[in-house]
Nucleic acid binder design. Structure first.
Lengths: 200, 200
DNA sequence: GCCGAAAAAGCACGATCGTTCAATATCTTG
DNA sequence: CAAGATATTGAACGATCGTGCTTTTTCGGC
């Protein structure tokens, strides 16, 4: 890896933490330069525009997400076990942002949902990929016979995402110590009502 | 109402729409001045600080929310009917922000969840009030005998909020036309599993 | 209609924003 | 080690930010 590449990725790593606190828009070249000990222009030269930096941050975040959540969870046995693994690793993912500002995707979504452009498109793509993953995993549980054959898997994915958003809202904004317990309870209820043979 | 008060409230009204698009931080005095046809300093004098403006915006938003959602829904008969009314009016509330940037509370939550200060405190209070309202309404449905006596009403409130957040995410960011249908389905499932006597 | 009060405007400040560009330092390779 | 490519700096740009003044306009009660 050349010198340029490695400083670039170091910048992006720092940007990830900073962006998670102040948002993708709040990311300022100046603050980032001071934080990394570089000059503004030297840092800027690696990206050419702020938008390119934001996109690089999102790319890095997604890569990290795949590595930390999707890939390992995909090794769990197909079906409910894999779903649980995905859900559980979602907590780890959130925990990995503790001390910073929380998952950059969810932190940036409300900020860009009305601002057309490449960043918004990138956010949408990431969320769509994740949702499709959830749908696929749910279908797997239908095929193993654990979930009802008539289960609406898109609805299932929607609800998993909703539980996750609720968790973030409750833990990060409200600082509710019961946030995780609430999320788990909601998830268990979701699983229960999705099973082909509920435990009465 | 004096001249000052009426221009002040006109400014706040404009700020509401603008803030819902660009966020409470993105609210700039300059852009707001241009948008209202006033001078920056004339506008600024009404608040004394940007933070005071942000707080005024939140106050106005909450008042609007109470007027549009809480008050009317409170007139519905106690129990599930009132819960449904609250949920239903939540859609109207979101719809009332169509064309702008969506509910300013939810749009600002991720932006301030790591920035201590009066604005954050104000956001937390608003959300806490709303959650307590939901808990109270759920308790009402327990008392009427519609909901299970052992229902965890705080859990119920958490899930209603989560469904709402999921709806916003799905409709605003993903532009999913099925967002509302998903939210409704999730809500119905929540009601079903909360009933004392589920419809089989 | 006058006059004190209140509201709005005008102007300027220092700071910071994203960005450009020429000059310098550092790497990488022959 | 030399030399060409690459990385980084420093200074500056126009714009905009939130905010503090002083001055002017407008309002409201007598």
């Amino acid at each position: 890896m050349s010198k340029g590449e490695q400083t670039r990725s170091a910048i992006v790593a720092q940007s990830l933490d900073l962006a998670s606190v102040v948002g993708l828009n709040g990311l300022s070249i100046g603050a980032l330069a001071e934080h990394t000990g570089m000059s503004k222009s030297g840092l800027f030269a690696h990206f050419g525009s702020k938008e390119a930096l934001q996109l690089a941050v999102l790319d890095a975040a997604e890569e990290r997400f795949v590595e930390m959540v999707v890939k390992p969870a995909s090794k769990a046995p197909r079906g409910v076990a894999r779903i649980r693994e995905m859900f559980e690793r979602g907590f780890e993912w959130e925990r990995s942002w503790a001390g910073t500002g929380g998952c950059v995707f969810n932190a940036s979504a409300p900020e860009f949902d009305d601002q057309p452009g490449a960043v918004r498109d990138r956010l949408v793509r990431a969320q769509r990929d994740w949702r499709e993953t959830l749908v696929r995993v749910a279908r797997g549980a239908v095929q193993t016979g654990e979930f009802r054959p008539d289960l609406d898997c898109e609805q299932f994915a929607y609800e998993v995402k909703a539980i996750n958003l609720g968790y973030i809202h409750s833990s990060r904004l409200m600082r509710d110590p019961k946030a995780e317990a609430h999320a788990r309870a909601a998830f268990e209820r979701l699983i229960q009502t999705s099973l082909a043979h509920p435990l009465h």
